[in-house]
Amino acid sequence: MLPGFQSPAVGFDQPFEMLEACHERVQRSVALLQRLAEHLHRVGNDEPARQAAADVLRYFDVAAPHHHEDEERHVFPPLLALPRDAAHAAVHAAVRRLEQDHRLMRQLWQGLREALQRIAQGQEADFSHQELELLQRFTGLYDSHIALEENVIYPAARVRLDAQAQAAMGMEMASRRGVVSTGPTAATR
């Protein structure tokens, strides 16, 4: 079965856990995109394929940009404020690479988005060879990106953001999404 998935419930009162839960949703959306490509090739553009395309579009049009903005506003700046010395060179380089990844992800997404819209509307039966290459670049980029964030960047940022800064981070993240409550049932966007 192609469409849909459930999101882990975590609240904005735990912003790093929220960011990691978002990574789980990214990975599920990436996997859905890959399954969609296989399904289109094997079965063609049927209702499950159109629903899967719509689900992927919704995630990468709405939630993924919020997630990237969360990182660019709250996670990257304190790390870039670290002294520019040998002790922090790896963190600085990792942040710069992640910023570059975000730009490339947006660019790759635009090419995939158009194809997914046509698939979701039943106007296209399959991805073209070029679109499949874009899809592979896009999904591969997310795999390495998430690993770098979770293994290097988030741990480094957690150390630099005290409880008060993390609470403010969570409140701003929720506010930008129009979420009033910050408890575990508050949102998974």
Rank of each mutant, 00 (worst) to 15 (best):
M173A: 09
H145R: 08
W109L: 02
V179R: 14
A31T: 02
Q27Y: 02
A167W: 04
R58S: 11
A186P: 11
R28E: 15
R160C: 01
S128R: 08
H129I: 14
V95P: 02
L141W: 06
A186W: 07
I146R: 03
A89N: 06
Q100E: 14
L57G: 07
S175Q: 12
R177T: 05
D61S: 06
M105D: 05
Y154I: 11
A63Q: 07
S29W: 04
L134S: 00
V75R: 02
R189G: 02
A37L: 09
A115E: 11
Q117M: 12
Q166A: 13
R189P: 04
E124W: 00
Q107G: 01
L32W: 09
F12D: 06
R106L: 07
F138G: 03
P65Q: 07
G183S: 11
S181E: 09
L134H: 05
L36R: 10
P48R: 01
A49P: 04
P15G: 01
D70V: 06
A174C: 09
E172V: 08
D61I: 04
L33K: 05
E131T: 15
R158E: 14
D46M: 04
A174E: 07
P65S: 04
H41S: 12
M171H: 15
Q34T: 12
P77L: 00
L32K: 08
Q121K: 06
E172L: 11
R106D: 05
S181D: 11
A157H: 01
G44L: 01
T185F: 13
V43K: 10
V91G: 07
V75E: 04
L82N: 03
D70E: 14
